[in-house]
Simulated scan of single mutants.
Amino acid sequence: MKKLEKIDLFNFGLENGKQRAYTPLFYQLFGQPLHSAPIVIVNHALTGNSNITGENGWWNDLIGENKTIDTNYFTVIAFNIPGNGFDNNFGNLISNYKDFTIRDIARIFWEGLFFLNVNSVFALIGGSLGGSIAWEMTALQPDKIANLIPIATDWKATDWVIANVLIQDQILNNSDDPIADARLHAMLLYRTPQSVNQRFQREKLNENSIFQIENWLVNHGIKLKNRFRLSSYKLMNHLLKTNDITRERNNFQSVITTINANIHIVAVDTDYFFIADENRKDYQQAKLVKENVFYHEINSIHGHDAFLIEINQLSQILEPIFNKQKQQKYVSA
């Protein structure tokens, strides 16, 4: 695994007015040396981390040598959301999770980039929670990003997302086995009935045992419990409902007009969490005021998790963006 780097942030003011005396920001660098190549920022999803490629990399099929996001050509930076526990320092976990918003995380990520003297970014990409953070990062610094690529996400928390965040929060705070039980519910948000039914077909492990679907869900709960901390899950889940790039700003179209970046909205047609209808409406609104906004759709039976499963489709969507840059000389400011 690539070395985990750290930036020390002191006296960081949260959106609610509270101050954090010390916040460690952990990240990993992949590909070309910093400031020698175009920079790509990758934001991780709810249970993800900065280890995006290489040994145990969760997006290995998309990022790496000779992949769509080619580390032979790009410098790739991935931050860990503070409190996600990937540094294995339990003293850095965050208990006051409701103090934080996605805007706070986006500001922390920009603090990290400015510390690294990164003032322009070729592409900012993220799926799910990571894509929501990418939207907010772009709203905060609308002239510093060339391409915004939010995948299976939204610029706002819909009522549907807020409702499911509440259910997850209730499970996490009231269950005897909170991480495992919350994961059972979450997995059914990330997949579709069609995907589940097609895969398991009412089969059992053996004649007298539990159904295959039950075993699959239980195993997902156990795996997450073994690698994720309760405080981390509470924070990541809570952040989902704080997403809104229009909060204390103007409406969506007004915010969009301030953004210089090409915006590539990537939806999943069967996403039951960040539903594609919302993405389509956003695209139609954005096109009325901004020319360089584009809509792409992954077609899949698998639902929200298709952005991790349908790599061939995602690669075809992203290939023109990243290949075009390969033909141009670029050094980050």
Rank of each mutant, 00 (worst) to 15 (best):
L140E: 10
P142S: 02
I125W: 11
L148G: 00
N88K: 14
P142E: 01
F122T: 07
F114L: 15
N147E: 01
R107M: 12
I149P: 00
D143Y: 08
I145H: 01
N117R: 14
I94K: 15
N89L: 13
R107C: 14
I149S: 00
M137F: 09
A146N: 11
L113S: 11
W110C: 07
P142T: 10
T101W: 09
G91C: 09
K98G: 02
Y97A: 05
I151W: 06
E136R: 06
F100L: 14
F90I: 14
K144V: 03
T138C: 09
M137C: 00
K144E: 04
F115N: 15
G127F: 02
F122Q: 01
N96W: 02
G127T: 05
S120Y: 12
I102K: 09
N119P: 00
F100M: 05
L140N: 02
A146E: 13
S132W: 05
N96G: 03
I145Y: 08
I94E: 10
F100R: 03
N119L: 02
K144S: 09
I149Y: 05
D99L: 08
N96D: 14
G127Q: 00
D104W: 11
F100K: 03
I108G: 10
E136F: 11
I145R: 01
D87A: 02
V121K: 05
L129N: 07
I108R: 09
P142Q: 05
E136V: 04
S120C: 14
V118A: 03
I102H: 03
V121T: 13
N96E: 14
S95G: 05
N119C: 01
L93E: 06
I105A: 04
D143G: 02
S95D: 13
A146L: 11
I108D: 05
L129E: 08
S132F: 01
F122S: 01
L116N: 09
G127E: 00
L140I: 15
L113H: 00
A123T: 13
K98F: 09
G126S: 02
F100S: 01
L148Y: 03
A139W: 06
Y97P: 06
L129I: 09
G130E: 09
G112T: 12
W135E: 00
L140M: 00
M137K: 04
G85E: 02
D143A: 06
G131F: 15
I151F: 06
F122H: 08
G126E: 10
K98R: 15
I105T: 14
F109S: 07
M137L: 03
G131P: 10
A139S: 14
A123E: 06
Q141R: 13
